[in-house]
Simulated scan of single mutants.
Amino acid sequence: MKNLGIATIVAGGLAAAVLGLAAPAVAAPSGPGSAQQTINQLQRQGYKVIVNHIGSTPLSLATVVAIRSGQTYSRTDSGNPGDSRQTTVTNKTVYVDVK
């Protein structure tokens, strides 16, 4: 019985750790606006935007259904021997679903 209690505590701790380490959601633009405005704002924030367009509505009239995080690419280098390592984000991808 004691082992079951310890296992439950450990499982709860692991679940909390996984949730705490989950990637934060992309800060989606809020308020009314077209899908095109949302896409433009994300691009200004430095994201490479991949659009999943459902239907034939023009982006200027479409609405955003979902915004999902994609892959982030980075590069780590030291420049000169003996320098500290520096990580530079080279590309951030976000998926925008519009309808």
Rank of each mutant, 00 (worst) to 15 (best):
M1D: 01
M1I: 07
M1R: 11
L4M: 13
L4T: 08
L4N: 08
G5R: 14
T8Y: 00
T8C: 07
I9E: 07
I9K: 12
A11H: 05
G13N: 06
V18F: 04
L19F: 02
G20R: 09
A22K: 04
A22E: 06
P24H: 12
A25E: 11
V26G: 12
A27W: 01
P29H: 09
G31L: 14
G33I: 12
S34N: 05
Q36W: 02
Q36V: 08
Q37I: 08
I39V: 12
Q41P: 00
L42P: 00
L42W: 04
G46V: 12
Y47E: 09
Y47N: 10
Y47G: 04
K48E: 13
V49F: 06
I50T: 15
I50F: 04
N52S: 13
H53Q: 15
I54T: 09
G55H: 07
S56T: 14
T57G: 05
S60D: 07
L61T: 01
A62G: 06
T63R: 14
V64Y: 01
V64R: 09
V65D: 10
A66M: 05
I67F: 07
I67L: 07
I67W: 08
S69A: 15
S69V: 09
G70P: 05
Q71Y: 03
Y73L: 14
S74D: 08
S74Y: 07
D77R: 14
S78W: 00
S78M: 11
G79N: 15
N80K: 10
N80A: 11
P81I: 15
G82E: 02
G82I: 09
G82Q: 01
T87K: 13
T88W: 01
T90F: 05
K92L: 02
K92N: 03
K92P: 02
T93Y: 01
V94F: 06
V94W: 08
V96Y: 00
V96C: 01
K99W: 00
